[in-house]
Design a protein around this nucleic acid. Sequence first.
DNA 1: ACATGAATTGAATCCAAGTTCATTTCTTTA
DNA 2: TAAAGAAATGAACTTGGATTCAATTCATGT
Lengths: 207, 207
Amino acid sequence: MAYRHTERVQEQLQDKRDRILQAVRSVVGDVGFRGAQVATVAEAAGVATGTVYRHFPSKGELFAEALTLNAGHELAVLAAVARSEGTAMDRLADAVRVFALRAVRARRLAWAMIAEPAEPEVDAARLASRRAFADVFEGLITDGIAAGDFPPQNARLAAAGLIGALTEGLIGPLAQDAGPQPDAAALARDVTAFCLQAVSARPYKES
Amino acid sequence: MAYRHTERVQEQLQDKRDRILQAVRSVVGDVGFRGAQVATVAEAAGVATGTVYRHFPSKGELFAEALTLNAGHELAVLAAVARSEGTAMDRLADAVRVFALRAVRARRLAWAMIAEPAEPEVDAARLASRRAFADVFEGLITDGIAAGDFPPQNARLAAAGLIGALTEGLIGPLAQDAGPQPDAAALARDVTAFCLQAVSARPYKES
DNA sequence: ACATGAATTGAATCCAAGTTCATTTCTTTA
DNA sequence: TAAAGAAATGAACTTGGATTCAATTCATGT
C-alpha cells in the first residue's frame, strides 16, 4: 500500500473542477456557447486540455453543468425575491426588475444561459432551468389572480410570455445591436413596465 | 462560336436554384438548422451535392437566402394585415393573431426562422428580418398611441416584447414540450390576449 | 454528326474541434 | 530516497460535414 488520496488532494481536485466550471462561465460570458471551445476553457482555467476530460466526460456535460450551476444561482436570487413580503403585484414587479437588471449587466452570458442553443445536453439543462424560472413567474401570477391583483388569465402562458419579452427586450440580438447600452436602468424600467402591464392590466378602452 | 445559353436553359437553372431553396425550407422545417446538412438539402432537391455549390457560394449564404426568402414572405403577409382598415387596436390584434396561427402551424420552421442560431450569415439575415417584423409591430403601436388607443409607452421595446412573448409562448422550447399541440387555436387566442393586454391596457388597480 | 462550352455528379479532400493516450510530473507512504 | 499510484500534459488521432474537382453528361450551333 503506497498511495491514497489525502484530504488536501481532494480539495485541490475539487478546486480544479470548480475552476474549470468557472472558466466555462467566463469564456461563455465572453464569446457565448458558439465560440467556446474546450481548449479555450482549459486555458482560461490554467489547465491542459486533457485535464478537462479527467473531470468531465464530455464538452456537453461540462457545459451543461456550468449552465445548471449558474442558472441555479440566478434562480435562487429570483425565488428569494418572489418569496418576500408584499402583494403579488409588488413581488412580481421586483422579480422582473431584478431579473432585468442582472441580465442587462451581463448580456452575453445571460443570452447564452437563457436562449443560445448549444450541445444537446446543454439544451436539456437549459430547458429544465427555464421551466424553473417560468414556474416562479407563474406562481406569482397565480397568486396575483387569486388575490384579485390581476385579472384571470392563462398563467402558464403569461409566464412564458414574460420570459420571452424579457429575453427579447433585454438580451436578444435585437437588443444587442440597439446600441451597446442605451441606459441599463431605463431599459430595465421600461421592460418592467411592459411586463407588469401585460399581466396586471385591464383593457385601456372599454371594448 | 458553338454554345450560348438559351432561354430554356436559363429557366432550368433558375428552376433548379428555386428547388434548392425550397429544399432548404423543407429540410429546415423538418430538422431545423442544426440538423440540416448540405447533402440532405441536395438530396431533397433531387440534385447532387456539388450542384448546390454551383448555385450558391456556401452553405451559410444558401441558408441565409432561404431564410430571407421565407421571412420576406411572412413579412409581406403581416404587413398586409397591418396596412388594412381599422383601428390600430384591431390591426394589432389581427397581426398578432395571424402571426400566432401561422407560427403554430409550422413550429419547427418558425423556430428556425425566428430564433435558432446557425451560420453567421444566417444569423445576420435573421437579424434583419427580425427587425423588419419588429418594425411592423412598432408602427402599429405608435399608431395606436397617437390615436389614443394605447397609453404612451416605449413602442420599440414593446414591439420587441411582443415578438419575445410570441416566440416563447408559441414556438420556443418551453412551448415545444408542453404537449405537441394542446390546441393551436386556444393557444393563439391566449397569446393574442396577452400581447394585446401588454400594449393596450391601463393599470388594473389604481396604484 | 461533331466540336465546344457549360452543368452535373459524387467520391475524395480538407478542416475545425472534440477526444484520447503515451509520457511526464506530482503525492504519498515505507 | 525510492517505489507506486494518480493526475496532468499536449500532441496526435478521430470525426462529422463542408467544400472541391476530375470525370461525365448535356446543349448549342455549324
